[in-house]
Design a protein around this nucleic acid. Structure first.
Length: 261
DNA sequence: CCTAATGTTTGTGC
DNA sequence: AGCACAAACATTAG
């Protein structure tokens, strides 16, 4: 589930409840989700300290620990979430790490444990841990998008979902944006015209803004995302039966009429 | 039992 | 090097 809009929602949860608050304790319920940090170190570093204002880059949530430049880096894989709840409320079976505060607790929840939590000591380590992420999809300009995709002979969908090219788009968003921009996911990125790129950038902005507001890619019937799970879905725009296939090993849905190759 | 799932990493081969 | 593809990771649902 988590793509840029979902993580933006988690950022809001963090900002509202945890930013500026003192961490009373850290419960590591499943150490498997900790990457490169032992439960004891996470606990000793974070306990008693305050969190600063959270940031987001692509699908990563960055939560600074006030004081010495450390930061908690959270990734949510395919099934993760960040939930605020009362201390007295029962824990969920998939709560893996819980930060407790005076007012309640912040729960890192994840069914599959495909990614996880890291702790960076400073800005340098933060950058290294995040790898080579491209610019965030929400703030990229049209010209920048053109530069990023220009010269790439790979298929457009593959380029859009490559986090080192552009950070934040996942499988659902890429399909939704390509459908709105009337571009086939199979077309080579380098082959897009100025007009194609302009449309792609504009539609990406619209889809992202509306999704961020909802904290998810909203499965509205007027969106491709709202139809893709139906057995014989039709295009919300033209009624043509949608096509399904695989691009980059991911399930891909497109309209053969609106998005010709 | 088998398959697929909205993510990332790693390895293989062209 | 760039790109496509498969597998691996862990877990659940159908």
């Amino acid at each position: 589930m988590p793509e840029l809009p979902d993580v933006e929602g988690f950022r809001r949860v963090f900002a509202e409840h945890a930013a500026g608050a003192r961490v009373r304790d850290v419960d590591v319920l499943d150490a498997q989700v900790l990457r490169g940090v032992a439960p004891a170190r996470l606990r000793s570093v974070v306990r008693g300290r305050r969190f600063g204002e959270p940031a987001r880059h692509g699908k990563w949530l960055i939560a600074p620990v006030a004081g010495d430049g450390e930061a908690l880096l959270l990734h949510f894989g395919m099934t993760g979430s960040l939930v605020w709840d009362g201390e007295d409320r029962p824990r969920h079976r998939h709560d893996r790490v819980v930060f407790t505060f005076a007012e309640g607790e912040l729960r890192y929840r994840d069914m599959r444990k495909l990614t996880g939590l890291r702790l960076a000591r400073d800005e340098t380590e933060s950058r290294a841990a995040l790898g080579d992420l491209g610019p965030d999809a929400l703030s990229v300009s049209r010209d920048e998008l053109g530069r990023l995709l220009g010269g790439l002979r790979r298929r457009t969908k593959s380029a859009l979902t490559d986090q080192s090219v552009l950070a934040g788009l996942g499988n659902l968003l890429a399909d939704e944006i390509l459908w709105r921009a009337k571009l086939s996911p199979h077309r080579a990125a380098a082959g897009l015209s100025r007009g194609d790129l302009g449309r792609l950038h504009a539609r990406m902005g619209t889809v992202l803004r509306q999704s961020v507001e909802a904290g998810r890619v909203p499965p509205r019937p007027s969106w491709l995302t709202g139809r893709r799970d139906e057995p014989s879905a039709s295009c919300p725009r033209c009624g043509t039966t949608l096509c399904r296939g695989r691009v980059d090993g991911r399930s891909t849905v497109w309209c053969p009429r609106c998005q010709p190759t």
